[in-house]
Design a protein around this nucleic acid. Structure first.
Lengths: 201, 201
DNA sequence: AGAGTAGTGGACCGCGCGGTCAATAACTTT
DNA sequence: AAAGTTATTGACCGCGCGGTCCACTACTCT
């Protein structure tokens, strides 16, 4: 029909995402985005709309892929479910403490900066948090079914609590807290999970 | 010696703090600050330096007073220590869920926006997190001494974990998660604390 | 080949940004 | 009362912001 695009949309969105991720929304200028993507302003506006729409687009994509990634990571048989979750959260702890990851996660950053004044961001973030929680809950249900949690354990409550711990990791990680402390938080939270009654010997 | 100031410094800093708190650092303009404080630009610059210094000043004050406030709130006899901590965190949960508090806490907001690129902010934030953690730990030590925690409980680890939960509350609260969920997270975390052995009857 | 259409790049717009400065005001000291 | 010092105001600066527009290009369709 007409002239085709010369850029790869996914690649451009990745570049945009990284900019917002590194500098935040307000501190990122359209010129930053032009430079990061290599596109002219007209192309960016033509293809994605203004700065706000562009942010929403990458934020959305980030949220979706985050939840998907977590679900995939936690997928597996009932047997190792609890340990999978534990390892996942320990990984988050390590990642949150890494100096290279000082920017934190886009979800946390975007939410902190914009959610209070941008309902769309808040909605998307809430949905994402609930998605993550749901993935945790499923994993905990598997663990319970397999007998790694006490019968009276409430996976929904535990999942919510672990979500809070996870978001907390990111928050304190951004301040530069050391890896051992962050991992310790995860370990301690897991030690508090209701263990099944010990088998008689 | 010379002309005295006509403004109350504490009051001005409070106004500045609220601006940064409501809109974030980058999104707050010097004009916003002029309007909020009622001062001219020259006065602001003369008294406090540039925007960044001004932010650091209010951020510092906020951090100091936050830690102080928590310490004061948690102060008291060994007897009610655990319950005081519980009530405090439940209060944080309720506050974090309140629509009027959607802006979150300045510590969280400032850290998320600036810590990755501003070492001073990161340092201050880390110090503050550690101060909060220390207050929790002290409270947990009291609780342990009073027998509200098991003898093998490690107050330092538990305090760190509760700090993570607390920061998590704020993070998910900003996305608009409901109060019941947030309070549930606190309850669940507390249910996981190592209880003392039940007394024989 | 010509017409039609969508993509591209960058010049351009007006505004509001962070920050400076000089004229003036309000005080203390001698 | 005069001199010295600091606070205050707001005009002013140059720049970089988000956003628009248009001449030009590269393609498809007839």
């Amino acid at each position: 029909m007409a002239r085709p695009r010369t850029f790869d949309e996914a690649q451009v969105l990745r570049a945009v995402r990284d900019q917002f991720w590194n500098k935040g929304y307000a501190a990122t200028s359209m010129d930053d985005l032009m430079q990061a993507t290599g596109l002219g302003k007209g192309s960016l506006y033509g293809a994605f709309g203004d700065k706000h729409q562009l942010f929403l687009k990458v934020f959305d994509a980030y949220c979706v892929s985050s939840v998907e990634a977590v679900k995939k990571t936690l997928e597996g048989p009932d047997a190792g479910a609890l340990e999978r979750l534990r390892q996942y959260l320990l990984g988050v702890a390590t990642a949150s403490a890494a100096p290279s990851n000082r920017r934190g996660c886009l979800l946390g950053r975007g939410t902190a900066e914009l959610a209070s004044e941008d309902a769309q961001v808040a909605d998307r973030a809430l949905e994402t948090f609930q998605g993550l929680e749901a993935a945790f809950v499923r994993c905990l249900e598997q663990a319970k079914a397999h007998g790694d949690l006490a019968p009276q354990a409430d996976p929904r409550k535990l999942g919510a609590m672990l979500l809070a711990v996870m978001r907390g990791l990111e928050a304190v990680g951004k301040a530069g807290m050391d890896e051992a402390s962050l991992r310790g938080m995860v370990e301690t939270a897991f030690e508090g999970l209701p263990a099944p009654a010990k088998r008689r010997r």
